[in-house]
Design a protein around this nucleic acid. Structure first.
Length: 312
DNA sequence: TTCGACACATACGT
DNA sequence: GACGTATGTGTCGA
């Protein structure tokens, strides 16, 4: 009933069917590495400074909660949270060089160059069959008592992806000392840099606290989405991580090949996709009692069977 | 049948 | 170890 798999960092992912087994909500077994992503698909080239030299960007996303591998399919639950984290890297440039060099990056649109103000990542969901957009929502730890938002575009600098265990450990930290411990893993504080005057791309990020890792936590598919097709067969979904460059003005029509709405009217900037990675086909189980371990078929003598509970 | 709202349960973090 | 927190899911009723 349970499949276990060792992660790169020695932690274990346990995949189990919630129709058969119930695991406590705060159990660490709820954390597990999800499906592998497709290789990067490049949508726009990035040029270094004013040269013709192209820079290769590598996206490194990982799912750390919410998807189980059951009967060769990746399964999530509409009512439950998932966690997706991501970083990115330049293949040709060590991230530490960003601090000592005045690198700028550009996108080409025919003969026009657009200087990238900052790199950013966004998360979207689509229907696997017809590519239509699926709304995602994010809660705070307060859930019903807090606000509900759509996953945002997050400015980001290149970094290593923290391992699965680190994401687990840092998921609900309030303690100051612990926060400090993880700070350099997740943030660069531009205002605390020793560099006197920044000139390169770091100077055009919107805030002094710059993320090194995007963490989409407490994400769910919107409760209103349909899980089944009219034929009653399962709908399939995919999660898509997009790395983009944010540039001034509205250049979406020329450079966006993904159909994303990415012009930000308020700031008059455009998120231009650079590369994307997608999950394989995902199934989302709905709220039907048949998707839970407490479910018992009528007129069967199985009523004495209780759902299996796993204690640690 | 589906969904929002509220409730309960239980391991985690402090 | 007590207490508050976070989150899977049970349930009610529109």
């Amino acid at each position: 009933n349970v499949i276990t798999k060792y992660n790169d960092d020695g932690t274990v992912s346990t995949y189990f069917d919630k129709r058969k087994i119930r695991i406590a909500p705060r159990s660490t077994l709820q954390f597990k590495v999800g499906p592998p992503f497709t290789p990067s698909e490049i949508l726009n080239k990035v040029y270094l400074n004013d040269t013709e030299k192209c820079i290769t960007l590598e996206l490194m996303p990982r799912i750390d909660r919410g998807f189980d591998f059951i009967d060769k399919e990746w399964i999530g639950y509409k009512r439950n949270y998932f966690t997706l984290v991501s970083c990115f890297k330049f293949l040709e440039i060590d991230e530490n060089q960003l601090f000592f060099n005045n690198f700028t990056f550009n996108l080409n649109d025919n003969n026009n160059r657009h200087q990238i103000k900052y790199f950013a990542i966004r998360l979207i969901a689509r229907c696997y069959e017809d590519n239509s957009f699926m709304t995602l929502v994010q809660h705070t730890a307060k859930r019903d008592k807090g606000p509900q938002i759509n996953p945002q575009i997050h400015p980001l600098i290149p970094s290593e992806l923290p391992n699965h265990q680190t994401i687990r450990e840092a998921s609900n930290v309030r303690n100051k000392i612990k926060k400090k411990k993880y700070d350099s893993t997740f943030y660069l504080h531009r205002d605390q840099l020793a560099v006197k005057k920044l000139k390169g791309i770091l100077s055009t990020y919107p805030d002094d606290e710059i993320k090194k890792v995007v963490r989409y936590e407490r994400v769910q598919f919107a409760s209103s989405i349909a899980i089944k097709k009219p034929s009653q067969s399962n709908m399939h979904f995919k999660l898509i991580v997009v790395l983009g460059g944010v540039v001034d003005g509205n250049v979406m029509s020329q450079l966006d090949k993904t159909g994303n709405e990415c012009y930000d009217e308020e700031n008059n900037t455009t998120f231009v996709p650079i590369c994307v990675r997608e999950t394989p086909s995902l199934i989302i189980r709905g709220r039907s009692p048949s998707n839970y371990a407490s479910y018992r078929q009528e007129n069967k003598n199985s009523t004495e069977k209780k759902p299996v509970r796993v204690k640690e």
